[in-house]
Design a binder for these strands. Sequence first.
DNA 1: ATGAAAGCGCTAACAT
DNA 2: ATGTTAGCGCTTTCAT
Lengths: 341, 341
Amino acid sequence: MAPTIKDVAEKAKVSTATVSLVINDSKRISAETKKKVLKVIKQLNYHPSKSARDLVSQKTGNIGFILTDDHFLRTEPFYTRIFLGTEFEARTGNYYILLATIPSDYGDKNTLPRFILQRSVDGIIIAGKVPNAFITKLQEYDLPLVFVDYKPEMQKSPLVLIDNIQGGLLAATHLINYGHRNIAFIGGDISHPSIRDRLTGYNRALDNSGIKQNKKFVHTSSSYPNRQNGYDAAKILFSKNKNITAVFACNDAMAIGVMHFLRDNGYSIPQDVSIIGFDDVEADLLIDPPLTTIRVPKFDLGAEALRVIKESIKNSNTKNKIILVPVELIVRESTKNIRKK
Amino acid sequence: MAPTIKDVAEKAKVSTATVSLVINDSKRISAETKKKVLKVIKQLNYHPSKSARDLVSQKTGNIGFILTDDHFLRTEPFYTRIFLGTEFEARTGNYYILLATIPSDYGDKNTLPRFILQRSVDGIIIAGKVPNAFITKLQEYDLPLVFVDYKPEMQKSPLVLIDNIQGGLLAATHLINYGHRNIAFIGGDISHPSIRDRLTGYNRALDNSGIKQNKKFVHTSSSYPNRQNGYDAAKILFSKNKNITAVFACNDAMAIGVMHFLRDNGYSIPQDVSIIGFDDVEADLLIDPPLTTIRVPKFDLGAEALRVIKESIKNSNTKNKIILVPVELIVRESTKNIRKK
DNA sequence: ATGAAAGCGCTAACAT
DNA sequence: ATGTTAGCGCTTTCAT
């Protein structure tokens, strides 16, 4: 049987209240008794009971982390990294993260994760794009919420986002600086705000450099931005446009698909075509040549989300806070400077 | 404020004890009152407080799920699928899963996941290979344990394993049935019991068919069985042995690496060389030709692990139960029948 | 079949 | 600075 606060109190010859004060690091306790109590705590290897604390504090000490199952099962460890970031940050504040996935085609007949129904969480982090029907249903429970890496259509919860516009700008500007003019953009699921923003950044970079936007160079679709769809998009683009010298793919998965298409069709990278991706996932390191990309600090995103939700739990007057996490250009070998020296 | 058992009791004009009996589905309650109480519960959207229940029952209602961080971040969603299986099964019994990762080079100076120190879990599921130092440290806390997809050297906890020997047998036998005689085995980290077992199955299949084992056809190493190492292993094997007609790779990641090597070197698959993998991960579907493999029911593994841990929590006299989950041969297009018709 | 009441381990208001 | 005590929401004897 694990020792209780009473055991500690008795052994240290103080009251349970004193022990409680020590545990909670109150300043109104003498250094002497504090030391004494701490010693007993260590001796007994005492750890406060979470359920007792939760019961009296009317908190659960848990944070829900929700994402769609296809995001969780994504081939590239993108959201798992974000999760790890929240897990890490949760240690400060001693929160536990409860992970739940929802179907990506969540509809009205689906139920909410049970930690919501059972009110076992103090707040919720939602990672990545989730169906609107889910968000709507969630509204009934007024739990502190924070979205990470997704901006829902209408929802005034705090947001932790990557600076996608800036990222798109960085990516396209890099290609322009390398002398490219005929730069394609390949994106899936254009209804996704992140992808739209990356495209916006791309357009802005062209404008900044006085390069005329060319619709033929922009390929978007409604499908998931994965390797296969990158392959297919490249096929379409390159069959119609022989003059493309560089491709900005909206994420690394699609970029890799593009590379496969090009290789299968006799192009060499980066001699014939330069490619830049977005995300900086591990797969990048396995491919040849190593992919130039925009690095997204996934772990930081998660940690930041946890900080925000902690704050929201404390001050329920959550501002419509938006945190924009900066991204970084990582130049590797899939892009080539084609300026005449 | 969420309604409490007292609110329900008052509104239903019964005692809290009665409500409790209803919640816990006791048989010693009249159908009539039960119905009445249930109605009020629904009206109020009442859900029992977990912390109060946990406090009185001296249980936490949580299960820890531990794996190394590189397994969690694995490119193929293998362990995430297992996790999803436990999550799913956890709904029966209303458990929450607390996920924690440990460093894959866990040593004496590392700490245990805090849900163990804080005794916030009733049992622990350990997924995949974990360092011995970790297991040793874990012993101090006598928590119910179950290992899934890993058999530690000495540890008498229940085990949920894939039938790797059977899988190896199935894989090699398939190739033999297809007329192959010079069959290579490619494996990483031969200290891993699963990989050893797959090799055992391979050897057994050769024996069964009276094919002489040839050490030159077996390549193992101490490194992580990933794509790159598969590529490198194939390079070594094929530079020395021109007569190999089929490869059994110890997992799909390595198999894909092998395929890349072969393609880069002018072999066509399966015309020149047949390949079979192990795991059946999603990546298989993206490659060309689709990979013949041994399917591992990952979700089931996780679900099974949770069932076992639930059982261990109830009857602390956990037998040294070993559950062997069967695998299945999935024939796709990377293997070719070369028998003369 | 149902109710009254004690108690799980802790915190916080109040008392000393 | 430290102790006393009520009470958080629930389960579980023990009565009735």
